[in-house]
C-alpha cells in the first residue's frame, strides 16, 4: 500500500505503469483520477485544497486498510494533492490491483466514496467574484450507505 499527500503534481502514466508492474499475481488494475473541473460559468481561476497534516495520512491509510480487508487486493495506491491548483490539473488518483477485476473496481469505488467525505480535505474555489469554500454534497454522504 502506498499513501501520498503532496502539493507537487504527479505523473499519472508513470504512477499507473509502475503500480501495474509491481506484483506478479495481479490480473486487474483499476485507476481513478480526479481533475479540477471548471465552474459552469467557466470562470474558475484556481482551486485551493487545505488538509489536516497527520490526520489526512492516517485517515487515508485506514480507508485503504479497510478496503484490503473487504476485497482480495494485491495493492492500493492513493495520491492526493493539496495547495494551489488550476483547472484541468489532476487533484488525486487511486489505483487498486487485484487478481480479478470485480474486486479492483469495487475497491476503487469504495476508496473514492470514503475519501470524499472522511479524509480531511477542504476545497476552495477562486473565481473573479472571490473565494468560496465548496460545500459537501448530501449525495456524497449518502453514497457511504451502500457499503
Amino acid at each position: 500500500m502506498r499513501i501520498v499527500v503532496q502539493d507537487a503534481p504527479f505523473d499519472l502514466g508513470e504512477e499507473a505503469g509502475r503500480f501495474a508492474q509491481a506484483d506478479a499475481g495481479v490480473g486487474a488494475v483499476v485507476t481513478f483520477t480526479g481533475i479540477v473541473r471548471n465552474t459552469a460559468a467557466g470562470d474558475l481561476k484556481a482551486m485551493e485544497i487545505e488538509h489536516y497534516p497527520g490526520m489526512t495520512e492516517a485517515a487515508l491509510t485506514e480507508i485503504a486498510e479497510r478496503a484490503q480487508t473487504r476485497w482480495s487486493l494485491s495493492d492500493v495506491l492513493v495520491i492526493h494533492r493539496h495547495g494551489h491548483l488550476t483547472p484541468g490539473e489532476m487533484i488525486m488518483m487511486v489505483a487498486t490491483a487485484a487478481p480479478h477485476r470485480a474486486d479492483a473496481f469495487a475497491a476503487a469505488e469504495y476508496l473514492m466514496d470514503y475519501l470524499k467525505s472522511r479524509a480531511p480535505f477542504w476545497k476552495r474555489e477562486i473565481t473573479a467574484d472571490g473565494a468560496a469554500w465548496v460545500d459537501a454534497k448530501d449525495e456524497d454522504e449518502a453514497a457511504l450507505d451502500r457499503w
Binding site: 475519501l115 470524499k116 480535505f121 469554500w133 460545500d135
Partner: peptide
C-alpha cells in the same frame, strides 16, 4: 481537538 466543516476531498 480539531474543528472543521464536512470534508470535500477527491
Amino acid at each position: 481537538v480539531a474543528f472543521f466543516p464536512p470534508m470535500t476531498g477527491g
